[in-house]
């Protein structure tokens, strides 16, 4: 594997990898006030973060290694130059422009209701994209619970990862959660996303490329562009018992094939469309069993863009729609 680093390309193999990893293991133990300062580097042994943590460059959790983040931890990301010297990799296929926690091993960030974990920008005037992502690459066993994410590019992201995201709050990010698979990685992405508040981001959930998104009991609201975007290859996903309201668009589909499940959700009051099929979505989408904010089928169809607007598109099937709001949809605890 080649890892672009400080304008050099270092071949990480065998003993040499261990030596280089040790050299780069700059999770400094020195204190800066009360915060742990973490420089750019590779975490090559199990590590626990607690208290305040300030990231000054990319951090990569090696294969076989676990990064544990304790309840109440505040992880703050500096806003670095896009693909600048604080990046571990210039590989734009897998890397985000700014600081990310690259997880090839595993991350366990389990906060509690009383002591959430924060992942945010350190900037006094933060904005979406100040930091990159928790970015899982060919990674399994990741658990993210009771975390608050803000000002990321894509807060939780995977190219081939098994991830559970539960009881979190995503706001002010570019994308809350995104995943797909990548050729060459053995792991196939499966995301379990439940009981999260995903509100006030540019975009909510974004998935495709052979990944599976099982999203349930989330409140997905007021995201600028869309609540959910299901792309080609995301057809095995199951979206149920969510509130998807007041987003730019509720649910977008591109190239999704039969088998995609979207049912028992409350989908209404999205600005442009509650549901929209994009160019190249030729298959019908079975969207029955959802509540659309009304029992007037004509009114429901008016909030859906499909074959009725453009003959090349598939149809969104809403027959069998709920007659009243789905009880218990949205965050359930």
């Amino acid at each position: 594997m080649n890892l672009g680093m400080d304008n050099r390309v270092v071949s990480i193999t065998g003993l040499r990898a261990v030596i280089i990893a040790a050299m780069l293991f700059m999770v400094a133990g020195f204190a800066h006030g009360e915060a742990l300062i973490v420089e750019k580097g590779i975490i090559s042994q199990d590590t626990t973060w607690s208290g305040e943590v300030i990231l000054k460059g990319d951090v990569e959790v090696s294969k076989g290694v676990t990064l544990t983040v304790k309840p109440g931890t505040i992880v703050m990301f500096e806003k670095i130059a896009s693909f600048g010297p604080q990046k571990l990799s210039q590989d734009k296929t897998h890397a985000f422009p700014r600081i990310e926690i690259i997880v090839r091993g595993k991350i366990i960030a389990k906060g509690t209701k009383e002591q959430m974990i924060f992942f945010t920008s350190i900037s006094p005037s933060p904005s979406a994209g100040d930091w990159g992502a928790i970015n899982m690459l060919d990674s399994t066993g990741n658990i993210i619970e009771y975390c608050d994410f803000s000002y990321a590019h894509t807060a939780v992201h995977a190219h081939s990862g098994l991830v559970t995201v539960r009881n979190c709050y995503f706001h002010d990010n570019g994308v809350a959660v995104g995943c797909k698979n990548f050729k060459g990685f053995a792991v196939k992405s499966v995301f379990t996303v439940e009981n999260n508040r995903i509100s006030g981001n540019g975009m909510g959930l974004l998935f495709g490329g052979g990944s599976v998104m099982n999203a349930q009991h989330n409140d997905i609201s007021e995201n600028k562009l869309f609540g959910i975007y299901a792309k080609k290859g995301g057809s095995k996903s199951d979206i149920k018992n969510n509130n998807i309201v007041k987003n730019g668009k509720g649910v977008l589909f591109w190239g999704v094939k039969p088998g995609f499940k979207i049912h028992d959700n409350n989908i209404h009051d999205n600005t442009d469309y509650n549901l929209s099929l994009m160019e190249g979505t030729e298959a019908d989408i079975n969207a029955s069993g959802n509540w659309w904010g009304t029992t007037d089928e004509v009114a429901i169809k008016a909030t859906i863009r499909d074959k009725e607007e453009e003959k090349e598109l598939g149809s969104a099937i809403v027959k069998g729609f709920a007659q009243s709001p789905i009880p218990g949809a949205g965050i359930s605890n």
């Binding site: 422009p97 945010t120 900037s123 006094p124 005037s125 933060p126 904005s127 979406a128 994209g129 803000s150 000002y151 590019h153 706001h171 002010d172 570019g174 994308v175 006030g200 540019g202 975009m203 600028k224 562009l225 730019g248």
Partner: peptide, 20 residues
């Protein structure tokens, strides 16, 4: 949280500079 998130300018900038 700190700062005011300016959602108004997000969509275009987001697409152009963050994602595209």
């Amino acid at each position: 949280m700190r700062g005011k998130f300016t959602i108004a300018g997000l969509s275009a900038l987001l697409f152009f500079h963050l994602f595209a």
